[in-house]
């Protein structure tokens, strides 16, 4: 748009109207992450604008807004692991738990430590920064979104479902609960992830059927299939947890996935 237009349109800009439905409040809490998770959220493109227009007020997020201290909020999207040698980080994660009704660990770092699982300090100017913990080792986390970077579409789905859970009618709340259940169970399952999970919790358990979902999920191409079964190159794996979460034999909730057509339509409709 040329500047002249901008000036003209600026004059006729009307007062912002309050949206009809009540929105939920959402914050982005940045711990020791790379901001790739936030970029993923932003990569919903126009969908992000719709989410902010209709469903969620962004009340905190140092990268996007000027609010300097963690406010009360419905949903905290936490990115990154927590350096326990850094006082501010530890305070912030505690405060996040106190201020947020729902804490979502977004991305491999927050869920499982991801690359910070390799950190071992010794680097000036803060050589003592050597221990980075997944958020769930310090506070109770409600929902997990593994992956590195996590997918924009999953972050979007969780945002829409969180909205339905907190503001929807009974039927919508039930759907949201069902949808979020496995992501809550992943949070309960623990704070460790590795490509080895495919061996330990799928192949060793007699559950692998060789679909290939895990290899497609891996963000560092650490997984190949040899005669139909996964092989993980452990010297590539960054411990993001995407492969196991993606595996249909980690969880498969018939009550939700069987309804894929309807749920996809619902989510797409919500973002129109």
């Amino acid at each position: 748009m040329a500047t002249a237009d901008v000036e003209k349109k600026a004059e006729i800009t009307k007062k912002e109207e309050k949206p009809v439905a009540e929105k939920i409040t959402v914050g982005h809490v940045h711990m020791s992450g790379c901001t790739g998770c936030l970029v993923s959220l932003a990569d919903n493109y126009d969908g992000l604008l719709t989410i902010l227009d209709k469903y969620a007020d962004l009340v905190y997020g140092l990268t996007l807004a000027d609010v300097r201290h963690i406010p009360k909020m419905d949903v905290a999207l936490v990115e990154g692991s927590v350096c326990i040698q850094d006082k501010i980080s530890v305070e912030e994660i505690r405060e996040t738990r106190e201020k947020a009704a729902v804490v979502v660990a977004v991305g491999g770092c927050a869920c499982y430590g991801n690359i910070t699982r390799f950190s071992r300090g010794g680097q000036p100017n803060q050589p003592q920064h050597e221990s980075f913990l997944p958020v769930g080792d310090l506070i109770k986390v409600d929902v997990y979104i593994p992956g590195c970077a996590p997918c924009p579409q999953l972050i979007r789905n969780v945002c829409v479902m969180a909205y339905l859970l907190l503001k929807g009618n009974q039927e919508q709340q039930e759907l949201a609960k069902k949808y979020l259940t496995p992501l809550m169970q992943l949070a309960d399952r623990g704070t460790e992830a590795c490509g080895c999970d495919l061996m330990i919790d799928v192949v060793n358990q007699g559950l692998c059927m060789g679909c290939g979902s895990c290899a497609a999920a891996c963000p560092v191409r650490a997984i190949t299939h040899e005669y139909g079964k996964p092989n993980v190159n452990r010297e590539m794996c960054i411990k993001c947890g995407a492969c196991y979460a993606q595996c249909p034999r980690s969880f498969f909730n018939f009550d939700v996935i069987t309804e894929f057509e309807g749920i996809s339509e619902l989510i797409n409709g919500a973002l129109q």
């Binding site: 993923s40 579409q153 496995p182 996935i257």
Partner: peptide, 15 residues
């Protein structure tokens, strides 16, 4: 099943 799970729960299947 894997495909549909990946559509509803895309952990590592962006876009």
């Amino acid at each position: 099943q894997a495909v549909r799970k990946g559509q509803l729960y895309p952990f590592g299947w962006r876009d």
